[in-house]
Amino acid sequence: MRTATVESARRALFAGLGIAAGCIGWAAIVGAGLGALLAASEIAYTALKWCGALYLFYLGVKLIRSPRKSLDEAPESNDKGAGSGWFLRGFLTNMLNPKVGVFYVSFLPQFIPAGAHAFLSSLLLGSIHGALGVIWFAILIAATQPVARVLRKPAVLQWLDRLTGGVFIAFGLRLLVSEQR
């Protein structure tokens, strides 16, 4: 929502597409049987958890230390070629979250019919989940556009960047200290 209101609907859509691609990535991992490794191996789970937390810390600290005063300060402010950066952010945010992997490991297999090809069925289910996510993101993006002008004011923009950075750091801390898999 922050990206849609403060940056642009286009960037938010690319971030949403990256998150959806992450769903398909996790579905492929589960379909290939590697998701079971994540569910069974404390080391693999912990390593992925640390990578995800560090990525969230990186994003959070960056937003807190250098909040923008205007959208022109964003490195991708011209939107030309900016889609790939936002897509990658969405993708990495999803793929570096071990809880998404554990969710897919516990959720997908129960919907794969006996005798069906596990990898292809997992991809299909992950694609459906990703497509539903993109539809949801499109609705959120459309809903935020009426308030976008207010949220693009310099003082509000700085406040939102710092708030978002704090939320990312809090999510990273929660990910690190969570015992539940």
Rank of each mutant, 00 (worst) to 15 (best):
R2C: 04
R2A: 11
T5E: 08
T5L: 12
E7G: 08
A9W: 12
A12C: 14
L13W: 13
L13E: 12
A15I: 04
G16C: 03
G16T: 00
L17W: 02
A21M: 10
A21C: 07
A21Q: 04
C23M: 15
I24F: 08
G31I: 07
L34C: 02
G35A: 03
A36I: 07
L37F: 01
A39C: 00
A39L: 07
A40T: 04
A40Q: 13
A40G: 10
I43H: 03
A44S: 14
A44C: 14
Y45P: 08
T46E: 04
T46P: 02
A47T: 11
A47C: 10
A47I: 15
A47S: 12
L48D: 09
L48E: 10
K49T: 05
K49W: 09
C51D: 13
G52E: 12
L54W: 01
L54Y: 00
L56K: 11
Y58T: 04
L59Q: 12
K62E: 11
K62G: 11
L63E: 14
L63G: 06
I64M: 14
I64G: 07
K69H: 14
K69P: 03
L71A: 13
L71P: 02
D72R: 07
E73H: 09
A74Q: 13
P75K: 13
E76R: 08
S77A: 15
S77D: 13
K80M: 07
G81S: 00
G81K: 02
W86M: 15
W86L: 12
L88V: 05
L88N: 02
G90C: 00
L92T: 01
L96T: 04
K99I: 01
V100C: 02
V100S: 08
G101K: 09
G101S: 10
V102M: 03
F107N: 06
F107K: 08
L108Y: 03
L108D: 01
P109D: 03
F111A: 02
F111W: 01
P113D: 11
H117L: 05
H117A: 14
A118D: 10
A118E: 12
F119M: 11
F119D: 06
F119Q: 04
S121G: 07
S122P: 12
L125V: 00
L125G: 07
H129R: 07
L132D: 01
L132P: 01
V134T: 02
V134R: 07
V134I: 14
V134E: 05
V134G: 02
W136F: 14
A143D: 05
A143G: 05
A143N: 08
T144V: 10
Q145I: 06
P146V: 00
V147P: 05
V147S: 05
R149P: 12
V150H: 12
P154F: 04
A155D: 12
L160Q: 09
D161V: 08
R162M: 09
L163I: 10
V167G: 13
F168C: 12
I169Q: 01
I169D: 05
I169K: 05
A170T: 09
A170P: 12
L173M: 15
L173W: 11
L173F: 14
L175E: 11
V177K: 10
S178P: 07
S178H: 08
S178K: 09
S178G: 13
E179H: 04
Q180R: 06
Q180W: 13
R181C: 09
